[in-house]
Design a protein around this nucleic acid. Structure first.
Lengths: 216, 216
DNA sequence: CATAAAAAAATACGATCGTATAGTCTGTTG
DNA sequence: CAACAGACTATACGATCGTATTTTTTTATG
């Protein structure tokens, strides 16, 4: 009987077990981030990954476990895309560090507009505290918070940020950046302007930097 | 047979149709805000409102309709609690208007910490654009945006806020305030500090005002 | 009191979903 | 070739949920 015929589109890309597994992970991360835990069905994930529903359950034992592994995958992507500035502000090379905060903000914004899963997953669970939020706090957020605070403090010591409470400043900065991503679908519909465009991001960051640099 | 016996706790509060209906609305708003649309079941809402599941369907025809009416109810609460400053910055009475922005921010923060439903419902739909988000945009957000922008501009004309792009400033302010509420369950677990305490809110607002007032 | 409308409750049904289980296919190893 | 393990599939079951329908109870009105 048929020797080849496996799938319709004649997968030119390799379709081994490993690629299937990560395809499921990527699809699950997307759908979990968009539809939430309850709004996501394993069948939908399987379809999006172009695999059978049973295979999802074979590679990941339960929906809960798939969710956890998806988030690990998302955070790995994020940490791989945003490591450059983290805690590595040059101590006193003193060429032009003034642009560093601006560059970091822009990089965070553009990446998050492109891969908003981590933010969506974060606030989904924050809005309904439970075991899943506790797990995320222990696994990711404690480290994220301390890294962020350390970055703020380094920047402050270099005179790049006003000397106010570091944790407050972290929240204000995070808020100003992340809110922009979260509210983007609304802004787009209200203002009729694409908030993830380069101009929009640059203008917003300019305004933000203006507020920060004129304050002491 | 029993003349009275209706319910266990001998409801001292009147339990007529109107109070039942609004009890369902309040419960639905809470649960929708916490668990999302998909994560909310009509049975759970009924239990929380202490009514039978069938009664939920009697008063509100469908889950979709219950969701809409819940949100109308939430927005009505919000507009009833936060009308004082909206668009009503005194034109030139000029006693001490400098505290007005600070007071407004504090009022928004304390109310939203107390009744975070509107924010949660807002971002739930923003994270998965669809017909429900479109409905919210047309019904609420267009007005919210224009009101907010108008407020910023009035404050700017009085010299209470730096003269930067009004919409950007609105987003930065909204972000700094709303993010604080959204991230509160995480902050509470990471920092071991209640973010909705008066001191925490005041300190945060002080920092924010410091950034705003030293900038021009 | 009679009667009709409104309010509330009980029941049932079809669909979806997570998961458990058994079966199939393929490649490898001894 | 035999045996086995890993990858994959098919199927079924129990539970939950939204909704439709029917029935009972309460309230209002003449």
């Amino acid at each position: 009987m048929r020797t080849v015929d496996r799938n319709a589109p004649a997968t030119t890309t390799e379709d081994d077990a490993l690629s299937r597994r990560s395809r499921i992970l990527a699809a699950a991360a997307d759908i979990f981030a968009q539809q939430g835990f309850d709004g996501t069905s394993l069948g939908t994930v399987a379809n999006a990954a172009n695999v059978k529903k049973s295979l999802v359950q074979y590679h990941f034992k339960s929906k809960e476990n798939l969710w956890q592994e998806s988030i690990h995958w998302v955070w790995k992507q994020r940490d791989h895309a945003l490591p450059k500035y983290l805690l590595k502000l040059p101590s006193a090379d003193s060429n032009d560090n003034s642009q560093m905060v601006r560059d970091l903000c822009r990089q965070i914004l553009t990446f998050t507009f492109d891969q908003p899963q981590w933010v969506k997953l974060m606030f989904q669970e924050a809005s309904k505290p439970g075991p899943r939020l506790d797990w995320m706090v222990d696994t990711f957020f404690k480290k994220d918070f301390s890294d962020g605070k350390a970055m703020i403090e380094v920047a402050q010591q270099q005179g790049l940020l006003p000397h106010v409470n570091a944790m407050d400043l972290l929240h204000i900065l995070s808020g100003a950046l992340i809110y922009l991503v979260n509210v983007a679908p609304i802004s787009e519909r209200v203002l009729g302007e694409k908030p993830n465009s380069t101009q929009y991001i640059d203008r917003h960051i300019n305004t933000l930097m203006h507020l920060l640099q004129n304050a002491r």
